[in-house]
Nucleic acid binder design. Structure first.
Lengths: 339, 339
DNA sequence: CTGAAAGCGCTAACAG
DNA sequence: CTGTTAGCGCTTTCAG
């Protein structure tokens, strides 16, 4: 803890009361002080290298200027862009972010929530799809301001920012249909994750509309290894029963690649593969991955804006922001194989 | 800001003084209170859902229990593991991390440093190689506790945690030499970055020891695009003058892949490529990348330990921790092409 | 326009 | 073992 020089030090040197220094240094209250003294005090404060103590100010104003950002796992590559988007607006408004990882554990999430509250965060940005109703209720009961990002939030008392998953899934399936695919597998994430269930439902609806024959399998997590395990099992049980697979996200799609390789199959020659998120480096995979690009940075930006508006009592913001997604066609999807 | 129920509330309800409540609730001071009252007070505090206000405590104790973590860019995939390593030990010791991104700008780093100081962080973990001497001096002059991670720190007044870059480079070059390569290119990062210059020096030394003919070119940043640009330029000027390239990190190696593709060359058939870091998904690139694996999570762990020891005045920790690295051989490196 | 005083919630002497 | 007192550094009435 630094804070070598305090308001009192500056006040003494300037021969005025601390309150005058406080008023002079704060933008909003500087008008209450004569221009001359403001100028003089600012000069002295500069010379003394005064820098305010945010902690002390927060105690008094009941605003920590700190936001809690709850993510499942920062090493999942979709979260760094979200966090940076959040950060970019927070920083410009004078806030800082306390980023915590839940590893999809409700227990950990609870502990982290308590820790963030003890630190008096002014609000929460919640990027954990796993969050259960009960936890959301807990947040709300404590009067916390929060915004949900990258998770569906119907019937929940917080605004949310999401990508248009349904449109993304539709675009992916239409792309496959246009390539001649009739039998498509959906490798879904665990349904406790809201994005997984939204995408799964969209898959079923769109496939029906397009007249596709479908199979759905579930991975136990949104990870490469879970995707690989699920796809291996599928390939052993149902070889060659589909010509394309739409994965719930890019990590699962990568797991599919691994499973295909293990079974001597190639994408797209044997099976087309499509992911979701357009995570960093998905263009460098082997083959490069066709996927649905979601605007993660912008999602972070919008969620932070929503939260700050809420905190600072600005005009009522929208309850839900849906950002457009786009299909990025690369090597992993191709025409249905001729047999 | 929550903090619905305060120490005073609990004290009133328990019919004791706030200080007794404070002592009872704090592990270290609970011994000063009779077991009976401790038990009673804890029960009441529980019932009232008391939760301490870290901000108020920090003001009094001059410890914010908050650490600033300064990284260049969280979307560079080596940093999330470091941050999670840091976080894992911080959290278990009751600290939280304020993570900030400098985007390699000294100006931004300065502003962020001030912001962190105003927030009264108890210490800093600095992962920005770019940090200039002057900034380090500034940190030190302000009496800040800090640890440097993933950057060389000779002649600097802070402990540091690094990977054994020299050994990694040596292992990579020995691997290439064993495959028959005689002419090797080093695609270095900008020398203002300490890791880049360390690796560059190690490259020169080891190559000399192994009797290799070398060329060195520099990328303007440790990024895919900078690597691609530099490698394109090299290939246009000196086609087929080397049979292998050792990149300063995996992102540069990826840039090399792009440049090779553009010039109709393949790795490893035409040129072998080796990266550094073993960043996530480097095994899924096309081809999978031979690279030096650095223990980023552990580096985060060790740096956090060092910092906390420093803060809590524990036994004098080592000034420098060097963690071992290992060469991971994958598809991108192979025998020297026969012509 | 400026000063005095109070107090945010907590811990740490100092007494008893 | 417990209560009293005094602030940490800051903002905000309330006077004047």
């Amino acid at each position: 803890m630094r804070s070598r020089v305090t308001l009192a030090d500056v006040a003494k040197r300037a021969g005025v009361n601390v309150s005058t220094v406080s008023r002079s240094l704060n933008q909003e209250t500087a008008g209450q002080v004569s221009k001359a003294t403001v100028k003089k005090i600012r000069k002295i404060a500069d010379e003394m290298q005064y820098s305010p103590n945010t902690v002390a100010r927060g105690l008094r104003t009941r605003k920590s200027m700190t936001i809690g950002v709850i993510v499942p796992d920062l090493t999942n590559p979709i979260f760094p862009p979200i966090v940076r988007g959040v950060d970019s607006v927070l920083f410009s408004r004078g806030y800082s972010a306390l980023v915590v990882n839940t590893d999809n554990s409700a227990e950990i999430e609870n502990a982290l929530f308590d820790s963030l509250m003890e630190r008096q965060v002014d609000g929460l940005i919640i990027a954990t799809g796993h969050t259960e109703r009960s936890m959301i209720a807990k947040y709300h009961n404590q009067g916390v301001k929060a915004v949900l990002v990258n998770r569906e939030a119907s019937g929940v008392p917080f605004p949310s920012v999401i990508g248009d998953d349904a449109a993304g899934i539709a675009a992916a399936l239409e792309h496959l249909a246009a390539l001649g695919h009739k039998k498509v597998l959906h490798l879904a994430g665990p349904t406790v994750l809201s994005t997984a269930s939204v995408r799964s439902i969209a898959f079923t609806n769109t496939a029906k509309r397009l007249g596709l024959t479908t199979k759905i399998i579930k991975a136990t997590a949104l990870s490469v290894s879970a995707g690989e395990i699920a796809m291996n099992k599928f390939l052993e049980a149902n070889p060659k029963s589909v010509t394309a697979v739409l994965a719930g996200n890019d990590l699962l799609a990568l797991g599919v690649f691994h499973a295909l390789r293990k079974h001597g199959l190639r994408a797209p020659q044997d099976i087309s593969v499509i992911g979701f998120n357009n995570m960093p480096f998905s263009e460098d995979f082997s083959p490069s991955l066709t996927t649905v690009s979601a605007p993660h940075f912008e999602m972070g930006v919008e969620s932070a804006r929503l939260l700050i508006n809420q905190i600072e009592g600005k005009v009522t913001s929208p309850r839900k922001i849906t950002l457009p997604v786009t299909l990025v066609v690369r090597e992993s999807s191709g025409p249905v194989p001729k047999r």
